[in-house]
Design a protein around this nucleic acid. Structure first.
Lengths: 342, 342
DNA sequence: ATTTAGCACTCGACAGTGGTGAGTGCTAAC
DNA sequence: GTTAGCACTCACCACTGTCGAGTGCTAAAT
């Protein structure tokens, strides 16, 4: 790959990202003055095709980048763009006064991203490895019901309603709560297992009849609080992309996006921190093999907490999307750090 | 409208609901043996068109029901269908063991409906008029943070994180909680207004510095708990309907469905209880003027609690949809009653 | 007075046709 | 190694004619 080939490839990809039309040799010769004629570019394009970096939808059409071509582009050719000040301002403004509800923060962050980008955006909340139980409270609602509230150390709150088989007084609920709290507070979620549960049962001999239903709900709530959650926004953005003018494809992608666990998988991606690109088939899922995804991690004091992702057609603006989520991830990390260090 | 006209109209509508194709006189004469020839039906159809009940997409095409036609159909012509036992069984089975999480119940009910119907389904949680504060608890998480949990009498739980400007001990948090609880428990949400707030401020003179942030969050949480929430499922179902083979329309409807407050408005509909139909333009919203909606109320001990709705193309199966939500509404009411009477 | 058969007419859908233009690959000259 | 030129390909578009479903009207039949 000499430099000219790289320039041609870069030109093809940039043009295709802009126009969504197969790009021909003449277009490149005219628009991107590489100092050579269209004939030369044609030769280069033939070579690039042989290398599998671009392909022809049909004879006598222009060329379109292949997955492999995009891959080469993001690895070697992409110029670092910079955000327009408008966008930078919007992000700054958004994060300026964010100190309140944590789940709302993730949701809103996701939404801001989806407004600044024409693609689908997603955020995964912190992964289980860090979740310790910060607080746990059982609140009596009626003789037959209580609400169990669980707060993790990253500030996420979960609750469950507990139904008692027999009436339980507020007093008793408070007692049970004290035992639970003493035993569980500060423990990480993995610790809340059978052994600990048995220990608690031991201390609550008198309450054995109702302790079961509490455990059930606690298990559920704890499990949920230990699980990553994915927020999704901008799903309708992709309807504006020309590659989705066909309802069938829209359906494929939209139903794909409903499978939260697969999204988690994708967001996890290559474990390493920093920005990652997954292009077309690299995503390894049928519904979205004509899509690409840019992911990026956010962190608290250097510890990776979760991931941010942008999903678009393979013809997406990789450079800009990457920059966007990097900026947002940085700001999000800052806010979370400020919150957690307090 | 003599009986034969009615029969012709019914036949047209039923055929169009099945096929989504304009229906001609010959089709009707053949498929629905009304005992007259296609020529007679042609004459009847001309009359029906003059009455505005059906219309012609273009000369030499069959006829298509108009909004007014559908209206006449649901008001006078619709035959009561009955559910297939499969469907009845599915609903029964679903509600058989539902006694747990309330928000989950609504969500799941909505999902079941969306699986039994090829349209978009929605459920609105109980409306504000009945919401009294059953419980209210402030849980200390860290010196600078607490979680405020609000439980309404219908069993919905909401929470907010409160950030304190100064460190507050667990002890103090508990004290504040006691005052709040004493003052607010059992009051309806409309009561939680300025007067009551002032009263509380009076009792919490020592805590004035932190009481503000608590009030803010309480207001938010209480407002949220007093607000209906709409669950939505089956949005992708409509992509299978032939009227949505055009991405533009899909976009219109899907973005429409994201506006929760408009959905609430639609679900409220005509206040009265029972089943309601809103057809095409009757919905009074641009994005969905080619859709119809069937709504139905559910209740606890005779008091209307909320609404269930099905949204589909105007060419939707009115009879079956109505029956479906009625059945589900009845079951849901039963479960809620069982829960609340305990 | 209704109903029906017959007929001319309309118009969308579809398939075929030819022209246009963008794009290619090859070759020969620079 | 680069370029100009040229023949070739093929999607796209506009146009055409045919087909068939469906209509409205009229005149005959009941």
């Amino acid at each position: 790959m000499d430099e000219r080939k790289q320039n041609v490839l870069r030109a093809i990809i940039m043009d295709y990202i802009n126009t969504a039309e197969p790009v021909g040799s003449r277009t490149i010769a005219k628009k991107y003055n590489l100092g050579v004629s269209s004939a030369t570019i044609r030769n280069e394009m033939a070579d690039l095709e042989e290398l599998g970096l671009i392909e022809q939808p049909h004879t006598s059409a222009g060329r379109v980048p292949s997955d492999k071509g995009y891959r080469y582009y993001v690895d070697y050719l992409m110029d670092a763009k910079s955000l327009v000040t408008d966008e930078k301002d919007a992000i700054q403004a958004f994060f300026a006064d964010r100190l309140y509800r944590l789940d709302q923060l993730y949701r809103d962050t996701c939404k801001v991203l989806s407004e600044l980008s024409p693609y689908v955006t997603m955020i995964m909340t912190p992964t289980k490895s860090t979740g310790a139980l910060e607080q746990l409270q059982l609140i009596s609602v009626s003789p037959f019901q209580a609400v169990l509230v669980v707060v993790t150390d990253v500030g996420l709150v979960h609750h469950r309603t507990v139904d008692f088989p027999v009436p339980v007084s507020e007093e008793r609920v408070r007692e049970i709560n004290d035992v639970l709290l003493k035993k569980l507070k500060g423990h990480s979620i993995e610790d809340v297992n059978m052994t600990l549960m048995k220990e608690i049962s031991g201390e609550l001999q008198k309450e054995l009849d109702i302790v079961d239903s509490i455990f059930d709900m606690m298990n559920e709530a704890v499990k949920e609080s230990g699980e990553e959650k994915v927020f999704l926004e901008g799903t309708l953005n992709i309807l504006n992309q020309p590659e989705f003018k066909d309802v069938g494809k829209v359906k494929d992608v939209l139903s794909f996006l409903q499978q939260e666990n697969i999204l988690k998988e994708l967001l996890h991606g290559k474990a390493g921190s920093g920005t990652n690109f997954a292009i077309g088939g690299e995503l390894r899922h049928n519904g979205i093999n004509q899509c690409s995804m840019v992911t990026c991690t956010y962190s608290i004091n250097g510890n990776t907490m979760g991931n941010i992702g942008i999903l678009g057609p393979t013809r997406m603006e990789y450079a800009k999307s990457a920059l966007l989520i990097q900026t947002v991830a940085k700001e999000l990390s800052r806010v979370l750090e400020r919150k957690s260090n307090k």
